[in-house]
Design a protein around this nucleic acid. Structure first.
Lengths: 185, 185
DNA sequence: GTCTATAAGACGATAGAC
DNA sequence: GTCTATCGTCTTATAGAC
């Protein structure tokens, strides 16, 4: 792997684990096995490198989500597939966690990939829920965009609960509760 | 207000805004209008002061939640009251956000109030949902503890969505979606 | 491209005067 | 109790040799 590649991948891992504020250029360099000069040759500084890392993580998250959402099956089944897919629950969401990073939220550039990814996910889920509504799969009293927001929020909040206890139990419970509420009858 | 009080209150605000990793003793001292020596006279260091601040924030959150949950009305109405109460949505949850702070999660002492508060909330909501189940208010197919997890997760995740867009819209949408799913028929 | 050297300031804390 | 001084380390770079 090339040096810029190693720097980006190291930044992705450290951002996931410690956030932007908690990740120093020095830590990135050590994790990547690169020197100071090497990092500043390829990237203008910490924000530039973080942007490359965040963009890649966001892209990957979209691809992973799309994989569970684009399969066959009813709307409920695809939503269930998304909610029940394997996750590293205790690590949390590498994109969602950045919303708690003050320096990321303060920078329009760094925040953009975060906003876009979560908005894309919400719209993608809303389209599927709307399909379900059109097929009479869900109660007509429901609003597709609202339910999509509930789904994404349950996942993001499930990570918070899981990390607070150090166990995936609360995440799983929240997801099962949501699926029970959504279940077609 | 006494100096220790001002230090604790300043720490609470900075922890809410910037997290533990992003909050320096110096910033706390300046915000509180206290000197270095003053802070280290009253507290043994940053973790000690943060613990006092986190405990108080956790206590306050419990009191606020209890206020919306202990009123009159059906289980659904009390859950709705909790979900729809006024919130500073874009600031997020001062307790939940700490779960994304690596140094808080790494310390059993600092994490304890976070764990306890979110677990208390989940149990408190589970008891109310169980009441609703006993009254035939909700579908008997539902599990009280699961639904309680879904409710807390929706709120915590709603903050993530709101902060990602810089608008409370997604939080409100997620809450409305959940209430529509819960609505007794 | 990568290395080492250097730097101004922040971080988290301690020491000792007042 | 509060103040200033000091400390060793980390942070986020820049400069310039190789």
């Amino acid at each position: 792997m090339s040096t810029p590649e190693r720097l980006i991948e190291s930044t992705r891992e450290l951002l996931w684990e410690r956030g932007y504020v908690g990740t120093s250029p020095k830590a990135i360099q050590q994790h990547a096995g690169a020197g100071q000069g090497s990092m500043y040759h390829h990237f203008s500084g910490k924000p530039d490198l973080a942007l490359a890392a965040i963009r890649r993580t966001a892209e990957e998250m979209r691809a992973t989500a799309e994989a569970s959402l684009s399969g066959d099956g009813s709307a409920y089944e695809r939503v269930a597939g998304y909610l029940l897919r394997e996750r590293d629950v205790l690590r949390g969401c590498p994109v969602g966690r950045l919303t708690m990073d003050p320096d990321v939220i303060a920078s329009d550039t760094l925040r953009a990939p975060v906003t876009e990814t979560l908005e894309w996910l919400r719209e993608r889920l809303a389209a599927i829920v709307q399909e379900g509504l059109d097929q009479g799969e869900f109660s007509p009293a429901l609003d597709a965009r609202e339910i999509a927001s509930t789904i994404v929020a349950t996942v993001q909040g499930g990570y918070v609960l899981a990390r607070s206890t150090g166990s995936p139990e609360a995440f799983d419970a929240g997801v099962r509760g949501l699926l029970a509420l959504l279940a077609p009858r």
